[in-house]
Simulated assay, not measured.
Amino acid sequence: MLKPKGIFYLRDTIFSFPPAEYEASINEWIQRVATEGEWWIAKDFEMHVREEHSTYAWIIEEMLTKAGFEIVEASYNTPTYAEYLCFKSS
């Protein structure tokens, strides 16, 4: 349990692209990351999309707020990754 005024940091696969662009954005992401790294292949990222249940920024931000966090900083490094710095407000 995080104490009031505690710091919470989240960095994860979080989609910040518009939902209508889902298919094109996901396919672009898979092709980009599968060719950049030596360890991951397209099937690994396809599995992630099917099984890991990553969500949109607007959903995670609402969840954080409803859980009593104040989002101090949000960074969207790419349309598929985000970082949040939060304080527990109560």
Score class of each variant (00 low, 15 high):
Q31T: 09
Y56L: 07
Y76V: 00
I26N: 00
N27K: 15
A57L: 15
E46T: 07
E23T: 13
D44M: 01
E61C: 02
H48E: 09
A82Q: 14
S54D: 05
E61I: 04
Y22W: 06
E51I: 05
E23W: 08
W40I: 10
Y76F: 14
V72Y: 06
D44W: 05
E51S: 05
N77F: 06
E23F: 10
S54N: 10
I41F: 04
R50Q: 10
W39A: 07
E38S: 12
E73R: 15
M63F: 09
D44Y: 06
T78K: 04
A24R: 14
S25L: 03
Y22P: 00
R50N: 08
I59G: 03
I71S: 02
E61V: 01
A57H: 09
N27Q: 14
E28Q: 09
A74K: 15
E52K: 15
A34G: 13
L85D: 01
A24V: 07
Y22V: 00
C86Y: 12
Y22T: 02
G37Q: 09
L64P: 02
E52P: 00
E38K: 15
C86F: 13
E73I: 08
A57Y: 07
A57R: 15
I26S: 01
V49M: 08
W40C: 04
Y81I: 03
G37D: 05
I71T: 06
W29Q: 12
A24Q: 11
E73W: 02
Y81A: 01
G37M: 08
Y81W: 10
Y84W: 02
T80H: 15
L64H: 06
E62N: 11
E38D: 09
A82C: 11
E38L: 13
W40T: 03
P79D: 06
E51N: 11
Y56D: 02
F69L: 13
I71M: 04
V33Q: 12
H48G: 03
N77V: 03
G68K: 14
A82G: 13
E52M: 12
E61H: 03
E21S: 15
V49E: 08
S25A: 12
R32M: 06
G37N: 11
E83G: 07
L85S: 04
H53Q: 13
W58P: 00
L85T: 11
Y76C: 02
T80L: 14
E52N: 10
G37S: 12
W29F: 15
V72N: 06
N77L: 06
L64G: 05
E73D: 05
E73S: 08
